[in-house]
């Protein structure tokens, strides 16, 4: 029982990285912008987080600084893809290369140093003393509650229960109609892309300030790409995205247990699991449930720039 409680605990901790990045990508994709720069944004956020915490020893400042860097870089990306309407795939790949390269260049000074202060687990009074459930659900750092509870529920409410959310989705499905209805398509796309980018960078800071917690080159290790894939698997829904991230956290946790318990599988092979799992998760459902396709479909105008005069 203790192992399972520990597994769930690690699943939340590891899944948090993917969840925050995936939730940000849900926002961008719902308004019609594919951001393939998540991997680079996470690297930038990760190095910003560690640099600020080394200077200030305050994890919150590191996290906020990463959000700010992500927002700024996201605005550059949104300028290119939404205002100029440059190819989104190309711009996203460029952002991944820029972010990964810059983070590694800046981060060389911090390589291998553990974060001097991290987001520590908080025990929720009474509940954390429960057998099994206490360890699995109520002994996490505060970001885990924010990422798995507050953000997904808020985004779900925003997107599916408010007028503003309806507008958001309209912009992603049919920007010409949204424009005709008087919505500012460019503003919706610009800001939600930038906010999504900020969340991606925030998840990078979560990685170096709560999960690993230290910086090294390649610390992001494809998690940005897994997050992008999870959004597809989650059918572009925030609560599903958080759930999918948790599932992935569980796969990662299983790998840890395998290494700790000396399963007769080499560590590099165990490390392949999340990548292979992601590939399976985005291919198999399409084949298995043809009928679910429409319900889980991508926004119709995804990755299509909007030109007002050609509508």
């Amino acid at each position: 029982m203790d192992i399972i409680a520990g597994l769930i605990q690690t699943a939340f901790l590891a899944g948090g990285v993917l969840a925050l990045a995936a939730l940000g990508e849900v926002l961008a994709e719902r308004v019609g912008v594919v951001n393939l720069g998540v991997e680079g944004l996470m690297a930038l956020g990760a190095v910003t987080g560690i640099a600020v915490v080394v200077a200030t020893t305050t994890p919150w400042l590191g996290f906020l600084a990463a959000l700010a860097v992500g927002l700024a870089v996201g605005m550059v990306f949104a300028f290119a893809t939404v205002i100029i309407r440059a190819n989104q795939v190309l711009s996203g790949l460029a952002l991944t290369l820029i972010g990964t390269g810059m983070a590694a260049t800046v981060g060389k000074a911090y390589s291998g140093t553990p974060a001097p202060a991290i987001f520590r687990p908080l025990d929720i009074p009474i509940l954390s003393d429960l057998p099994f459930f206490g360890r699995a659900f109520f002994q996490h750092n505060i970001l885990v509650y924010v990422i798995f509870l507050i953000v997904p529920l808020f985004l779900h409410w925003l997107m599916f229960r408010t007028r503003h959310g309806l507008n958001m989705r309209a912009v992603g499905e049919n920007p010409a109609a949204a424009d005709a209805a008087g919505l500012n398509v460019m503003a919706y796309r610009f800001w939600y892309t930038a906010i999504g980018a900020a969340m991606a960078a925030g998840s990078g800071a979560y990685l170096t300030l709560a999960f690993v917690p230290s910086w090294s080159e390649g610390v992001v290790a494809g998690r940005g790409w897994i997050a992008v894939a999870l959004v597809i698997f989650a059918g572009f829904r925030p609560i599903n995205a958080a759930g999918a991230a948790l599932l992935f956290g569980f796969v990662t946790a299983l790998g840890f247990v395998g290494q700790a318990r000396n399963w007769p599988i080499a560590a590099p092979i165990l490390s392949m699991l999340p990548y292979l799992g992601t590939i399976a998760l985005i291919i198999l459902p399409v084949i298995a449930w043809q009928r679910m396709r429409r319900m889980m479909a991508a926004p119709a105008a995804l990755s299509t720039p909007y030109f007002r005069d050609t509508r």
Binding site: G40, A80, I84, A86, L90, I98, T100, G101, A104, K108
Partner: peptide
């Protein structure tokens, strides 16, 4: 000079970003 090959990667990304923008313009 204390830079790494990663600096080259970042520069490549910049070229790609400008190329994407230039393509559209």
């Amino acid at each position: 000079q204390g830079l790494t090959t990663n600096t080259v990667l970042a520069m490549t990304g910049l070229i790609l970003l400008f190329a994407a923008i230039g393509d559209e313009l």
